[in-house]
């Protein structure tokens, strides 16, 4: 049997290589911007603005590339024939996406920080607070996990339905199935959050959150009331959704999702 850690490391190695190529493209764009600045074609603020924009685009493309890598795992022999339990394969892939995202964000953040420092712009982070930044980052990471989980759920439902129904050549019928399965999974998510909302209301967990607020001004980002508590509550809710839907995905993976047959050797 192959251990989960070995599968995780192999997946992470391949995905880090993939996002590193994106980072190289981002660095290339920044190099062009710097050259244009040196030639006097654009201002320092333009360089910062455009490079931040490309950084965001890199992060978004990275997210899509990772989602694609994750979905390929479920339907490719090279992963599904590894002697490991399906739930371990699922966890290894999800954790690998998380680790790759942290790597991508860390590098993009480092590049942006260097740019800001080199430009002489000090920024205004003094009042933001490490705890707040860390809390937001954790929330965003959990939201990313939820998005990947939903994409997988969608993919697995579509695979399951198309394998079950009679062979369909008509594209429109396939579109109808995709649309219907999207509606079903959205409904599932809606039920989950409605149930959780009801639970929170009944238990009165967020009674104090009515007084919470957040301001961003010249002094930076300031927390009032229980913003931090609400952030962690949201993170908890999303994490619960990830666990619940992840368990559903593992069930679908082990019972219904088969690999694709490829006509070529590899």
């Amino acid at each position: 049997m192959t251990s989960m850690s070995k599968v995780f490391w192999q997946m992470t190695k391949e995905r880090v290589r993939q996002v590193t190529q994106l980072i190289e493209i981002d660095l290339g764009v920044i190099a062009v911007l710097v050259i244009m600045r040196l030639l006097g074609r654009i201002s320092t603020d333009d360089v910062l603005g455009f490079s931040t924009l490309f950084g965001l685009i890199t992060v978004m493309v990275g997210f899509i590339a990772q989602a694609q890598s994750q979905e390929q795992v479920w339907v490719q022999n090279r992963w599904r024939l590894v002697p490991i339990a399906d739930w371990k394969l699922y966890c290894a892939s999800t954790l690998s996406n998380l680790a790759t995202s942290v790597y991508l964000w860390a590098v993009i953040a480092a590049i942006t920080t260097v740019e800001v420092l080199v430009s002489g712009n000090k920024g205004n982070w003094s009042n933001t607070g490490f705890t707040m930044v860390a809390s937001v980052l954790v929330l965003v990471l959990v939201m990313l996990l939820l998005l990947w989980t939903l994409i997988s759920l969608e993919h697995m439902l579509i695979t399951m339905i198309t394998d079950f129904l009679p062979g369909m050549q008509e594209k429109w019928l396939r579109c109808v199935i995709i649309f219907a399965s999207i509606l079903v999974s959205l409904k599932l998510v809606d039920w989950f959050f409605s149930g959780l909302g009801w639970l929170i209301k009944v238990t009165g967990i967020t009674g104090a959150s009515l007084n919470s607020s957040m301001t961003i001004d010249g002094a930076g980002l300031t927390m009032h009331g229980t913003v931090l508590a609400d952030l962690w509550l949201s993170t908890g809710v999303f994490a619960a959704a990830v666990l619940l839907l992840g368990a559903l995905n593992c069930f679908l993976l082990s019972r219904w999702v088969e690999t694709k047959q490829t006509p070529t050797a590899v």
């Binding site: 090279r78 024939l81 690999t259 047959q261 490829t262 590899v266």
Partner: peptide, 11 residues
């Protein structure tokens, strides 16, 4: 773990 299948390279 007991089987080696020629299609295991797919992907």
């Amino acid at each position: 773990g007991q089987i080696s299948f020629s299609a295991q390279m797919a992907g």
